[in-house]
């Protein structure tokens, strides 16, 4: 027998899609254009690459462990957007980029993004495939590689984006102790404090998820982030109203049982 399940999620998705569709229409017809602030972490990419160019030393980029088949997938997509842009700036300015790949699923994606970036800047000859290295899907191997590479190759700029566990603090700490300028980005809430404490620039949560929109400035992506802000206001209102109703004695539990 055919059954429809998860009604509340369906209603939420319909509301979200309606708001997104309406804002997209407003944006397309130029009726309202949202103001969009590029975050310091994204603006710092030029500085990080510039430092590598000025000092003639490489930039080390770790792209995160997150599996694309789990809820870590979206932050990995944000990580790929930042990696693509960083590779493009490196190709344009002649900086050497070393990319540490931390999940085997990412190998073809990182390779194709690097190729695309270097092809766009007509610098395919400069792309060193030996610098696109798989480090094993383990924090131990990536930490060991980071410590060795920072020391041996005298890395001056370090970027770690995507999903990370407890090793985020090690990566930031090692980079800081070696005098690297660093950017960290993750949407794993448990790692936010270490990210902020250990890195020079950071992108947390939604900052990373909206990286693609910030870099491309594509109206569709910007509107998508904009719709998210409206939904947040809606959710905050619902939370406040729900709290007041629960406080005065109304039973709102049935909503959660839908």
């Amino acid at each position: 027998m055919i059954t429809i399940v998860n009604y509340s999620t369906m209603v939420f998705l319909i509301i979200l899609s309606t708001i997104f569709g309406y804002l997209y229409w407003l944006n397309k017809t130029k009726k309202i254009m949202p103001r969009f602030r590029i975050l310091p972490g994204i603006l710092a990419l030029e500085e990080l690459v510039g430092r590598a160019v000025e000092m003639g030393r490489p930039l080390l980029y770790l792209t995160g462990y997150g599996s694309l088949r789990s809820d870590q997938g979206p932050e990995q997509l944000g990580s790929f957007a930042i990696f693509g842009e960083t590779a493009r700036i490196c190709a344009k300015s002649g900086a050497e980029i070393i990319a540490g790949i931390l999940n085997q699923e990412h190998i073809p994606i990182i390779t194709s993004l690097a190729e695309e970036a270097y092809r766009r800047e007509n610098a395919m000859d400069s792309l060193n495939y030996n610098n696109l290295i798989y480090l094993g899907a383990s924090q131990y191997s990536s930490n060991a590689y980071l410590m060795v590479t920072v020391e041996q190759r005298e890395v001056v700029s370090f970027i770690a984006t995507g999903w990370y566990g407890a090793d985020m603090v090690v990566k930031g700490g090692v980079a800081r102790s070696a005098g690297c300028l660093s950017l960290g980005a993750t949407a794993n809430p448990d790692q936010y404090p270490y990210l902020v404490a250990a890195f020079d620039y950071w992108l947390i949560g939604e900052d990373l998820l909206s990286a693609g929109a910030q870099i491309s400035k594509d109206p569709g992506q910007i509107t998508n982030v904009w719709a998210g802000d409206y939904i947040r206001f809606l959710l905050i209102s619902i939370i406040i109203i729900g709290s007041i109703l629960a406080w005065v004695g109304f039973n709102i539990q049935w909503i959660f049982n839908l």
Partner: peptide, 9 residues
């Protein structure tokens, strides 16, 4: 968003 396939920027 197709930034995982190729650069949009």
């Amino acid at each position: 968003d197709t930034s995982y396939v190729a650069l949009e920027s």
